[in-house]
Amino acid sequence: MYDFARGWEAARVHGKWFMLATVRDETRLVSMKAHPDDVQALTHEFAAVQPGYHLNKRHWITVLPNADADERLVTALVLESYLAVVAKLPKRDRPADLGAFASSLRAELLE
């Protein structure tokens, strides 16, 4: 994580954003990329998931503190955001076997 702008932290992989975080009115907001179909499904399924705060609402979601936003959900959403960005990197910048890398990362983080 590094400071992106005043009051914002950002996470990148090879210069591409996959997560932003800030605090607004004492509330921690975590925003991450998501596939457009997933944005719609997640915002309908979870009260804590909203369209991206000050971001492209088609490709970003923001998770607010809420009873249905447990650590496992946030971890899974950040992981999927990271993997989506990695998948679009040039081949030279991706892990050699992206599928195996994704599976091992999911297993490690979501045990």
Rank of each mutant, 00 (worst) to 15 (best):
A47E: 15
P36I: 02
V78N: 04
V78F: 06
D68R: 02
P65R: 07
H44L: 14
S31I: 11
V86R: 08
N66W: 07
G52K: 05
A76K: 15
A5S: 13
A67H: 09
V49K: 13
R72T: 14
F46T: 10
Y2F: 11
N56V: 10
A69R: 01
M1N: 04
A107T: 10
A11T: 14
H35D: 15
E45L: 13
E26K: 13
K16P: 10
A102K: 08
R92P: 01
E111C: 05
K16Q: 09
A84P: 11
A41F: 01
A96S: 12
R92S: 02
H59S: 10
E45Q: 15
N56F: 06
A5Y: 05
W60H: 02
K88I: 05
S103P: 07
A48P: 12
G52Y: 08
Y53K: 01
L20W: 05
V86A: 08
T62F: 07
A48D: 08
K91A: 06
P90A: 04
D93P: 08
A34P: 14
F4E: 11
Q40W: 00
Y53Q: 02
A41K: 05
M19P: 11
L105M: 13
A100P: 05
G7C: 09
D70V: 02
R58V: 09
F18N: 05
D3A: 11
K57H: 04
K16A: 01
E26P: 03
V23K: 12
P95S: 06
Q50N: 01
L109K: 01
V13F: 12
T62S: 15
H59P: 15
L20K: 05
F46P: 13
P65N: 10
A10T: 03
V74C: 09
A100K: 09
A5F: 07
A69T: 06
R28C: 10
A76H: 13
S31G: 10
H54N: 03
L42W: 02
V86E: 12
E9V: 12
L79I: 03
E9C: 15
R24N: 09
D25E: 15
N66R: 06
P51I: 00
M19Y: 08
E71P: 07
E45Y: 00
H35F: 12
A41M: 10
R106Q: 12
Y53T: 07
D97Q: 11
P90S: 01
L79E: 00
L83T: 01
A100E: 03
W60F: 04
H44M: 14
A5I: 02
R12L: 02
L83N: 04
A84W: 10
A11L: 15
F4S: 15
L29W: 08
A69G: 04
T22W: 05
T27H: 11
A69V: 03
A5N: 06
W60D: 05
V63M: 07
A69E: 10
L109M: 10
M1K: 00
P65F: 12
D38T: 12
K88P: 12
S81C: 03
Q50D: 02
H35Y: 10
Y53D: 02
L83S: 03
K91H: 11
V86H: 09
A47S: 14
G99C: 03
